[in-house]
Nucleic acid binder design. Structure first.
Lengths: 164, 164
DNA sequence: CCAGATATGTCAACATGGCTGACGTAAAAT
DNA sequence: ATTTTACGTCAGCCATGTTGACATATCTGG
């Protein structure tokens, strides 16, 4: 069927293929965020809090500016979220030693526990998808997702996800 | 390096691998939605409007209930968005003939133009990522994303994205 | 045929998490 | 010494999600 269509109109399959790729991303992201959102709601937090603690967890001592660059939101938006996390003891800020203007970000033990708990459904979901799809598929998945990222940012993202 | 680490602690690579998969999804989705959001802003619309017209475009005459099931939002939320789209002439609602309680959804020509314009950056982005990654990678990407979707919904999504 | 279920809409109120703009302070850099 | 940088804060706006309650038209099953 796909072959028939593409032999009639080679652009048709391509359009279909692209639409499918777009929709799959929508559906996957929808379900990917569902469980964490539920757990976060128990704490009175939202997805924004998850993002913050996730990236702080993976790079303890990161600067506020670095987190802003990753999240691509305004400092006012981040500030609200970060403020709550600090107030409630999930995140700790320490002055930088080299540059004392910086407020380096760390998770407290409580913060690490929250991060672990909230991310667990996502890890399980990705693990299961990887298992079902097989090892080569994992590599391909990474390649395509990386290709979806703005070209200018790819190098930075690669560096970032690999140093962990 | 990966081999060394995994031979020391087989769980380490796995955890790292999962974290990378999670972060790539975040980054890809972030950039994937960036351009459409900018265009939508010109019209005073947001991402929710895009989702609505996208799915109406791909399945003209769909019911409100079907759209709600895809988007997983409340009818009140959808109603606001749909109302604006109808008021401004992007979407048309027609009574169902078989079931006259239904308000079947259609894009107007204006709506199709908007959909095309807003989706174009996403199509270009996916096309380029597919091109760079190669044909087998595309299949693998789809397989993994499908695996990320709630198991209960996979069959429906597959049916949905394939009938187009 | 009628009672109940269904498809959709609507009003009201609220929360989250984006945004802009303006302003402030401490510390580093030139 | 001045300027730039890193960060914070106040105030207000907007988009998009939520819950709960209620209304209407239409379909369906007993």
């Amino acid at each position: 069927m796909a072959d028939v269509k593409s032999s009639i109109n080679p652009l048709f399959l391509r359009e279909e293929e692209l639409r499918q790729g777009i929709e799959l991303l929508f559906y996957a992201y929808r379900d990917f965020t569902g469980e964490p959102d539920s757990i976060l709601a128990e704490y009175g937090f939202g997805r924004a809090h998850h993002r913050a603690i996730h990236f702080i967890d993976r790079d303890p001592g990161m600067t506020v500016a670095a987190l802003l660059a990753i999240l691509r939101i305004t400092k006012q938006s981040l500030s609200r979220v970060l403020g709550q996390l600090v107030d409630e003891g999930y995140v700790e800020q320490r002055k930088g030693v080299r540059d004392r203007r910086q407020r380096l970000l760390y998770l407290t033990e409580k913060g690490r526990e929250l991060e672990r708990r909230v991310s667990e459904p996502q890890r399980a979901r990705v693990a299961q998808a990887y298992r079902e799809a097989g090892a080569e598929a994992v590599e391909a998945y990474r390649k395509v997702l990386l290709g979806l990222i703005n070209a200018a940012d790819r190098a930075a993202v690669l560096r970032s996800i690999q140093k962990g």
